[in-house]
Design a binder for these strands. Structure first.
Length: 276
DNA sequence: CGGCAAACCTGCGAGC
DNA sequence: TGCTCGCAGGTTTGCC
């Protein structure tokens, strides 16, 4: 999926067409994605004005003027595509279409259907099952070295797995965890509870830095991901280690170069010399 | 409770 | 050309 930088990019794109517009029609072209759509969802939101589009972790929050909130998630392969409703051509896997009162349409396309669309009342959002347990936003002030160190204390899982745990920090995914660990010079296999305070501090800095740079680049475009505009993000050209098995390490002159291992069934990329 | 594999679903590239 | 296999950005579930 789209990890935090990609979702942030999508939210910014959605905000430009949806904010302050009336959601005239919500076209649900099937009954479910990962989960069934809430019963009567379209009738619940049609005619409401959209007040804001926000991101929390990898969730898209579309706030309505009656206190309702549409909660979207892109899963692994979800995309939001914006264009004029007139002459719009629906493509395979366009499962939901948002129509605004100024003739624009947003197509929620998701080949693998790991994404979803849910609904909550704004006052219940913090208690929503999907949002209640989330850890701090990595780019927020609440995410610091001491905070991360405290969350990792005593953990016996590899730091790679801990950073993918959205309860520890919210929004990192498989790509940016490999990248952040490389810049923090920490082996992905290091047990989370063994980091020193200084290492936790350095890791927080690396996480904030890589996410900030990725957002500035409009995210990373892989096969399934494009910005709402249909343009490609270009951060994938700035990856240091992700997807670079066998290539030279960008940080040292070791012979081995970048290695790939599998942790929790997912690929991890790192340099065994530079990361300890 | 903690940690890990498997499951959800489709598409694509590599290799034969 | 066409098949099979492995792999893909996430998250939940269930097993040990």
């Amino acid at each position: 999926m789209p990890e935090l930088p990609e979702v942030e990019t999508v939210c910014r794109g959605l905000a430009t067409v949806l904010e302050d517009r009336v959601l005239q029609r919500l076209d649900l072209r099937r009954k479910d994605l990962r989960f069934p759509f809430p019963i009567g969802l379209a009738a619940l939101v049609e005619g409401r004005r959209i007040t804001s589009v926000r991101r929390r972790a990898k969730y898209i929050l579309i706030h309505l003027d009656d206190g309702g909130v549409l909660i979207g998630h892109l899963g692994m392969s979800g995309r939001m595509l914006i264009g004029p409703a007139e002459g719009m051509v629906l493509e395979t896997h366009d499962h939901v279409v948002f129509h605004t009162d100024h003739g624009m349409a947003v197509r929620f396309n998701d080949a693998r259907r790991f994404g979803f669309l849910d609904y909550a009342r704004a006052e219940d959002l913090q208690r929503h099952k999907l949002l209640a347990e989330l850890g701090p936003e990595p780019l927020g002030n609440a995410f610091s070295g001491p905070v991360l160190a405290e969350k990792l204390a005593g953990k016996l899982s590899p730091i790679k797995a801990a950073l993918l745990d959205q309860k520890i920090v919210a929004g990192l995914g498989n790509i940016y965890v490999s990248e952040a660990l490389f810049f923090a010079r920490l082996l992905p296999t290091r047990l989370a509870g063994t980091l020193s305070g200084a290492q936790a501090e350095k890791l927080v800095t690396a996480i904030k830095d890589v996410l900030t740079r990725a957002i500035a680049a409009g995210g990373s475009s892989l096969r399934d991901y494009v910005q709402t505009s249909g343009e490609l993000g270009y951060f994938q050209h700035q990856w240091a280690v992700y997807g670079k098995e066998g290539e030279p390490c960008p940080g040292c002159t070791c012979k081995t170069g970048i290695q790939r291992i599998v942790q929790s069934n997912r690929s991890t990329f790192f340099c065994a010399k530079r990361q300890r």
